[in-house]
């Protein structure tokens, strides 16, 4: 099952938000806001039909608007009612995770009209269907027509602003880094600068290398093949005789310690800053560093102990 129907649904929503931004001239930078969501809409609605280079030019335009054109910070819409709502309001909120889980687990086993879902597609369709059903529930509970909810969602999205795009831009940057050989260069630099034939040096280089490269690329999955291929296999496994299973698991989790400390992992560390209306852009990272550093140290010790039993 392709993801195109989901992208069309989301692209339609972006088009709606773009149209709203263009017609609502009360707020600043209407043209830029409208253009931003219009380009997003094009990339989601017909992105697959465009030549890759054209899509790339649109992505560049998005990044330029995000970097220079959009307001730095838009106040999040007021949370409205100050009197506590009805307890039934919890229903739509809890329906999102509950339905997502049910559909994620069941879709791969169903075959409706010979349509097969991969695990990833099932999770994404699960999320999308859950959100649509939850919206219907929310409208039933609050007794409103859909237009208002969509408009409110648009306001919330605009308050997140350019941060909404960052996870995507950074994923693209990761691909570019891989093409430019950035990871291999970093692994080589570590290998040249450190005497990896000493066991504890190799352990340090592997664990810290995972964390550092993850911080640079924003993603432990991208860092793993580079560091495990450049330091883990040739030195720790072949020279020092490390057990590969704990080496792999704890190495990846050392990378996750890096994820906790980098703005490159935007969907985890920067999007919540916008969602929670925080003033300090690094507030979430700052809250995570005191967990990440001792945990990374613990991982280095675990690597030394568990790989060489």
């Amino acid at each position: 099952m392709t993801l195109t129907p989901l992208y069309v649904l989301l692209g339609g929503y972006f088009a709606l938000i773009s149209w709203r931004a263009a017609t609502d001239r009360l707020r600043p930078k209407a043209a830029q806001r409208s253009a931003f969501f219009a380009i997003l809409a094009v990339l989601f609605l017909i992105g697959d039909l465009l030549p890759a280079a054209i899509a790339g030019a649109l992505v560049l335009a998005l990044a330029v608007i995000a970097g220079w054109g959009l307001p730095q910070q838009v106040a999040a819409p007021a949370s409205g009612n100050l009197s506590p709502g009805n307890q039934r309001l919890l229903l739509p909120v809890l329906a999102i995770p509950a339905l997502t889980i049910v559909l994620t687990l069941s879709l791969p086993h169903l075959s409706v009209a010979d349509v097969a879902f991969s695990k990833q597609a099932a999770a994404l369709y699960g999320l999308a269907v859950a959100c649509v059903v939850a919206l219907a529930l929310a409208l039933a509970v609050t007794r409103h027509e859909p237009g208002l909810a969509l408009a409110r969602g648009g306001d919330l999205l605009e308050s997140i602003g350019w941060a909404v795009l960052l996870p995507l831009l950074l994923a693209v940057l990761g691909t570019l880094f891989a093409k430019a050989g950035v990871g291999d260069a970093l692994a080589q630099a570590i290998g040249t600068l450190m005497p990896l034939d000493v066991r504890w040096v190799a352990i340090l280089a592997y664990g810290l290398g995972m964390a550092l490269l993850t911080m640079a690329m924003g993603n432990a999955f991208a860092a793993f093949p580079v560091i495990a291929g450049g330091i883990g296999m040739p030195f720790l496994v072949s020279v020092h005789g490390a057990d590969p299973a704990p080496l792999a698991a704890i190495g990846m989790l050392s990378g996750y310690c890096g994820t906790l400390m980098t703005p490159m992992a935007a969907n985890f560390n920067l999007v919540p800053v916008a969602l929670l209306d925080l003033n300090d852009r690094n507030a979430v990272i700052r809250a995570q560093i005191p967990t990440a550093i001792p945990l990374l140290a613990g991982n280095l010790i675990l690597l030394g102990v568990l790989c060489f039993r």
């Binding site: 939850a134 409103h144 969602g153």
Partner: peptide
């Protein structure tokens, strides 16, 4: 939209 709607209420 779901979150914004229930928050507004």
């Amino acid at each position: 939209p779901v979150i914004a709607q229930v928050e507004a209420h």
